[in-house]
Computed example of a mutant assay.
Amino acid sequence: MADDKKGGFLSDLFAPVGGFGVTFATMFRKVATTEYPEVKRPTAQRFHGRHQLNRHPDGLEKCVGCELCAWACPADAILVEGANNDDASGQRFSPGERYGRVYQINYLRCIFCGLCIEACPTRALTMTNEYEIADNNRADLIFTKEQLLAPLQGGMVPAPHPMVQGMEERDYYLGKVSQATPEQKEWAQAHHAGDPQTQEATS
């Protein structure tokens, strides 16, 4: 009985010392935590991040307003309103018959499943590696077409503008258009003189 009491007393005495020993040993281990946001780990190659609406090499939009992405979305996060291109004035947003006049993605609902990407017939919608889209305002998490459109690259002219002369819609998807032609640049300068994007693209 006395031995039991003695063993219990010693274990109670050295228990805190054992606990401190674990803490002390842990202090010298390498930290496994990534110091985000100072240090950002690269994402996987096929990471599902923020969406992007792509353009053709001359600047026309790939989205033809078919709304298949909205139909495929299981979370009802996508709103698309298509409209017809105006051939009479030569103002085209896409090489197709229609284009996406309104395009919105509600990131309060989006589950980043990628089904909208699979449904898109023109590869207009893809997903980037960008994941920093948190906000403290719910309204700012509904991204509009202007926010989702890919930035203009070299050789592109912002839509609307005519198609490349002599080309049909299928020629765009066959890769026959490499950049905006001088005629397209002149048309954009004449019709969008006050647009800083057009000024930069055509200069």
Rank of each mutant, 00 (worst) to 15 (best):
K5R: 10
K6C: 00
L10K: 11
D12N: 15
P16Y: 07
P16F: 04
V17I: 13
F20L: 14
F24A: 12
T26K: 15
T26F: 09
R29E: 10
V31T: 14
A32I: 05
Y36T: 11
P37F: 00
V39M: 06
V39N: 09
V39F: 06
P42F: 04
A44G: 08
G49T: 00
R50L: 11
Q52K: 12
R55F: 05
P57K: 04
P57H: 05
P57A: 02
L60C: 03
E61R: 00
E61H: 04
K62G: 03
K62H: 05
C63H: 04
G65Q: 09
G65Y: 07
C66N: 08
L68K: 09
W71L: 11
C73V: 05
D76I: 10
D76F: 13
D76S: 11
I78L: 05
I78G: 00
G82W: 05
A83R: 15
A83K: 15
N84C: 00
N85F: 03
D87G: 05
S89M: 10
R92E: 08
S94G: 06
G96H: 14
G96S: 14
E97D: 10
Y99G: 04
R101W: 08
V102E: 00
Q104V: 08
N106M: 13
Y107A: 06
L108R: 15
L108P: 00
R109C: 02
R109V: 02
F112S: 07
F112C: 02
C113L: 05
C116W: 07
I117L: 15
E118T: 15
P121Q: 11
T122I: 02
R123M: 08
R123D: 13
T126D: 11
M127I: 00
E130S: 02
Y131F: 14
E132P: 01
I133K: 00
A134M: 12
N136T: 15
N136V: 15
N137W: 07
D140H: 14
I142D: 06
L149G: 04
L149I: 14
L152W: 06
P158L: 09
P158Q: 08
A159N: 02
A159S: 13
A159P: 12
H161Y: 01
H161C: 01
V164D: 05
G166P: 03
M167E: 05
M167I: 03
M167C: 07
E168T: 12
E169R: 09
R170Q: 11
D171K: 05
L174H: 06
K176D: 02
P182F: 02
E183V: 10
E183S: 10
Q184Y: 04
E186A: 15
A188P: 02
A188F: 04
A190L: 11
H191I: 01
H191Y: 01
D195L: 07
D195H: 08
Q199S: 13
Q199W: 11
Q199H: 13
A201Y: 08
T202R: 02
T202W: 06
S203I: 05
